[in-house]
Nucleic acid binder design. Structure first.
Length: 256
DNA sequence: AATGCTCTCAACCGCACTCAT
DNA sequence: AATGAGTGCGGTTGAGAGCAT
């Protein structure tokens, strides 16, 4: 499972705790921008991209862990209805949550919701013609429950989004164009928040309802928690780095 | 208890954008 | 203006955990 290749080649797969410590140290030292540089100087046999991803999705001290709160769930739905699969953009509205997390959340929960919805809305025949069904078809997870031949070219959670903002960066522009094209007939539709909330309520009434307090489920074991937070300012885009680093083996690492 | 199935999420990949040269 | 390195993003995959039978 862990593919450890020989020295000169790159490591892939799950990160070890030691790698995490090392990465966190170097990020605190050099900032979270120059990933290729960090990958090199850290001695980690990882690509810059891999380092960045690990940091952003897992090691960043501002991250929340555990289940989404109902409020967050609503925000995700609300912003997804506006922006479609613009996960990073949505993530910016949910401090402590990553695009990856939101993406995963959408995929898992919306799939469930889609199945639920399909069951409820049309047990008999076509599921695309009822008003309730159409209420969420635009941005909608029910797409996922469609047969493959009806959804080809689009992943099940590529549910569109009607806002065609000018390209900001990355694949977004491409995605925007794609959505523009693929959902041209749907562009004018936006489904009301009432409908969304109705859906959420439906969801919350059954399988999403927490049976315990899930929101306190903060990962207990992240190695940097005890020390890094004070160095970081979340969501402001600014970081401050302490020079009195918390890693005990600073000098050893640096001389490596 | 063993096995199979489903769900979750960390991590990878490819593509497109930004920026320095 | 062209180009290449670095970076960010969305889509996808697969291992492991959890659950059902």
């Amino acid at each position: 499972m862990i593919h450890v290749e020989e020295d000169e080649t790159l490591r892939k797969g799950p990160w070890t705790e030691h790698e995490d410590v090392q990465l966190a140290f170097y990020v605190n030292m050099f900032g979270d921008r120059r990933w290729d540089f960090i990958a090199k100087v850290s001695g980690l046999k990882r690509t810059g991209k891999s380092c960045r991803l690990r940091w952003v999705n897992y090691l960043h001290p501002g991250l929340k862990r555990g289940r989404m709160t109902p409020h967050e769930e609503r925000l995700v739905l609300e912003y997804h209805s506006k922006w479609g699969n613009r996960w990073s953009r949505i993530a910016r509205k949910l401090p402590g949550r990553t695009d990856n997390e939101i993406k995963n959340y959408w995929r898992t929960h919306m799939r469930k919701k889609a199945q639920e919805h399909k069951r409820v809305s049309s047990p008999s025949s076509s599921f695309s013609n009822s008003s309730s069904s159409s209420s969420i078809c635009t941005n909608d997870p029910t797409v996922e429950s469609m047969p493959m031949n009806e959804t080809k070219e689009r992943s099940f959670y590529d549910t569109g989004g009607i806002e065609m903002v000018p390209a900001s960066r990355g694949k977004n522009s491409n995605t925007s164009m794609k959505h523009n094209k693929d959902t041209s007939e749907e562009q004018e539709k936006i489904y009301s928040m009432d409908e969304i909330w109705k859906d959420i309520d439906l969801l919350e009434n059954d399988d999403l309802k927490p049976s315990f307090d899930p929101y306190s489920d903060v990962s207990p074991s992240r190695i940097w928690d005890y020390s890094v937070n004070s160095f970081w300012m979340m969501d402001g885009g600014q970081q401050e780095f302490g020079t009195d680093m918390f890693f005990p083996a600073t000098s050893e690492l640096l001389t490596g």
